[in-house]
Amino acid sequence: MTYITIEGLHKKFGTSTVLHEIDMQINKGEFITLLGPSGCGKSTILRIVAGLTDASSGKIHIDGQDMTGIQPKERQVGMVFQSYALFPNMTVKENVAFGLRMQKMNPTEIEKRVEEMLAIVHLTEKADAYPKELSGGQQQRVALARALIVRPKVLLLDEPLSALDAQIRKKLQADLRMIQQQLDMTMILVTHDQEEAMAISDRIFVMHNGRIAQSGTPTAIYTKPKSEFVAQFIGHYNVFTRPTLEKMMGTRLPGEATKFAIRPEAIHLEQRAGDVPLQGTAKQSLMSGNVIRTTFEGTSTFLMEQLHQGEQAIRIGQSYTCYVAQEDVIALS
């Protein structure tokens, strides 16, 4: 069931167009991610949905209601900001209770709801602390609790985890996804971190220069990128022109595509039935956790990723014949 509809959203700042006719349909309870580099317009979409920025043209419907002319406070939209935007003059409890106080809810009910929400974000013992007394991760959890407690129809997350260190970020990603599923909340996350997007989203909208470059499930986006931009933005894809790849493979590629992408982990050293060869000399090998990324130089440079294999490490300077299955050669539009 479509819960949020964005139709023909267009936004100009002066003479510069930051959003070009954006269309999106989001279902209730979905976790959507707008993924893209800085300046691609993803945060602007969030601000327009929240009512904090006006669209130049286009319509937004939330739960069947046209949002045109509706003030931010009346949209029932929650938002978590990258800088947390916690009120420094209020304690954790007061920050979380703020939205309910604005609704003039009875104080006993506010107390009860705040306690419940602080328990969900594991901050009960910090109820009386001020924001400056909390770590970055704790502050972000307060911001999340403050936005969730008013039970918004949709929660917007504007790069909420980007200021945190890697370990806390991963923990909060998991927490965020768990809370979203627990509350069946519709959430829209903005991030430039493709790993974060892949880890927690139901669907991803990859954005580029104010346009949606591709949308789909994380698996679909990762395994079937449609363009060179998506292929390179979401992973370490190898992108080749048709003549280069045909020369490397020694075979004619089907279709009309001018560029092709190959996932680095689809390249391997053992030949399997139907594989095509790629010749190259190992130039650099970097270990990232249990994955080894090796750069080969042949007709063109390409990257291979393999799990760490102890003694069978790649020797730098040695020539290798690598292999890739034909179905892993993805034609780009």
Partner: peptide, 25 residues
């Protein structure tokens, strides 16, 4: 600006956001 935005999204009017959040800060 972000404090005001956050307060307004939580249901405060511009004046309430100014009086209860920005001014004390």
């Amino acid at each position: 600006r972000q404090l005001l935005d956050a307060a307004q999204l939580l249901g405060a009017s511009k004046m309430q956001a100014f009086r209860k959040v920005l001014l004390p800060t």
